[in-house]
Simulated assay, not measured.
Amino acid sequence: MPWLWGLSLGVLLPAVAWALLASPADWQQGETVRIMYVHVPMAWLAMAGYSGLALASVLALVWKHPLADLAARELSPIGAVATALCLATGSLWGRPMWGTWWAWDARMTSVLVLFFLWVGHAALTRAFEDEERGARAGAILALVGVVNLPVVKFSVDWWNTLHQPASVARLAAPGMHVSMLGPLLACATGFSLLFATLVLARVRAAVMERRVEALELARAREADRAPGLAVPA
């Protein structure tokens, strides 16, 4: 974990400094374009993280992998935060560009649905006393919500929205100058590393917590079997 923390912060901090201090302002949007260096990586992570959540759900439901449920449980709060940051920065960016904080176009609405799916999964997996039952219900919800990912991705192509088409992931040359594309990709890499590090840290802490609980339960059972031990009422 120290190596992962060092790597993620070592990439993210210079990337953010590059984006906020050294990259040029946009000729139309001015300095507000710098919101892009947080908004776009958060949007990528919201979708990529949910794809990871769906994969963990498949591993849990089909192959009963013990770490899959745990990984999905710890992933959903971080994914919800990333999606919330995507919505918040998008709103801040949209106000000076579009003249409104929010518009119910296809991209915004589908990302809002994605946020509710993240929050719903986080709540559902913690709503049952039986953790296995909660994990199963959360996995089903995660797999049902996968149908929303293509809507988020292709909404700007399928419907008339305020958002522009893809500027980076295109078969032709990216519609962005290298002076902006470089810091954007650096920020995306740094935020992705931080996202993965946070998920691994939460999973590691959850595994250790379960080991402690199992050890305490084993000790309690041994104490109950010990001869002459007074059992409390």
Rank of each mutant, 00 (worst) to 15 (best):
L67H: 11
G90S: 07
A88N: 09
L185A: 07
L117S: 09
K153Q: 10
S76W: 06
E216K: 11
G49H: 08
A68Q: 08
A127P: 06
R202V: 02
E31G: 14
A19K: 01
P2C: 00
T189I: 07
G94N: 03
D26G: 08
V11C: 04
A220H: 12
S167F: 07
I35Q: 07
R221T: 12
S23R: 02
S57F: 03
V38F: 11
A127C: 06
W104K: 02
E222V: 09
V203G: 06
L61F: 05
L149Q: 10
E132S: 14
Y50I: 02
L53C: 15
A103H: 15
W44F: 14
V199C: 04
V203C: 08
G134H: 02
C86L: 13
H65K: 13
W118I: 05
S57N: 08
L55D: 12
T197S: 11
L92G: 02
A172V: 02
V62C: 11
P77G: 09
M42F: 12
A172I: 01
L215F: 14
K153E: 06
V58K: 07
R221H: 15
A19H: 04
A71I: 11
D224S: 14
L141M: 15
L184E: 05
A223E: 14
H39V: 04
N148K: 10
M208T: 10
T161K: 00
M1R: 05
S192M: 09
H163D: 00
L215N: 12
S76G: 13
Q164C: 00
R136V: 14
P41N: 08
R202I: 02
M97P: 08
L9T: 01
W18C: 00
P183N: 07
R211P: 13
